[in-house]
Simulated assay, not measured.
Amino acid sequence: MRHEVTPDDTAAALGSGDVPVLATPRLIAWLEAATVRAARPSTGAGSTTVGTAVRVRHLRPTAVGGAVEVSAQAPADPTGRRLTFQVRAVDDSGELVATGEIERAVVDRDRFVAAAAGQVSDR
């Protein structure tokens, strides 16, 4: 998945810093989106995945107008409900921007949404 960095993607815009470069939270969101796509073969009817852990090293800045290609490698032999993805982002010059792991859990979608809704109504 290729993303071009816009002013809305910067640390200054997201409040995670005061510099006009790709914000780590935005980068992590893009990496998570790649894991969602990569997880699809591991989910059956009625199930989805939810993020449970993020370990990402943001290694170099990307300026507005620059682009990064994000990817997620699914586990070779997934077992159980936990999936650990190897993630990375590379800029247009071929330099590694980020690397890490993102874990997702396979859940029953309706049951998960109902549980979340119950938490909100209990407040």
Rank of each mutant, 00 (worst) to 15 (best):
V19E: 12
V19H: 04
L22P: 01
T24S: 13
P25F: 13
R26L: 13
W30Y: 02
W30P: 00
L31H: 02
L31Q: 00
E32Y: 03
E32A: 08
T35I: 10
V36Q: 03
R37S: 12
A38H: 03
R40H: 15
P41Y: 04
P41A: 08
P41C: 04
S42A: 11
G44H: 08
S47Y: 09
S47G: 09
T48K: 09
T48A: 15
T49N: 14
V50R: 13
G51V: 14
G51K: 06
T52V: 14
R57S: 09
R57A: 14
L59D: 11
P61K: 12
T62G: 03
A63P: 12
V64G: 08
V64C: 12
G65V: 11
G65M: 11
V68W: 01
V68R: 00
S71I: 15
P75Q: 08
P75S: 12
P75F: 12
D77K: 08
P78L: 04
T79F: 10
R82E: 09
L83M: 14
T84Y: 07
T84N: 14
F85A: 05
Q86L: 11
Q86A: 12
V87S: 00
V87A: 04
R88P: 07
A89K: 00
D91R: 01
G94L: 07
E95Q: 15
E95L: 14
L96G: 04
A98S: 00
G100W: 06
G100C: 10
I102E: 02
E103K: 11
E103W: 03
E103S: 12
E103Y: 06
A105L: 09
A105M: 04
D108K: 03
R109F: 13
R109Y: 10
D110R: 15
R111T: 06
F112D: 09
V113I: 15
A114V: 08
G118Y: 10
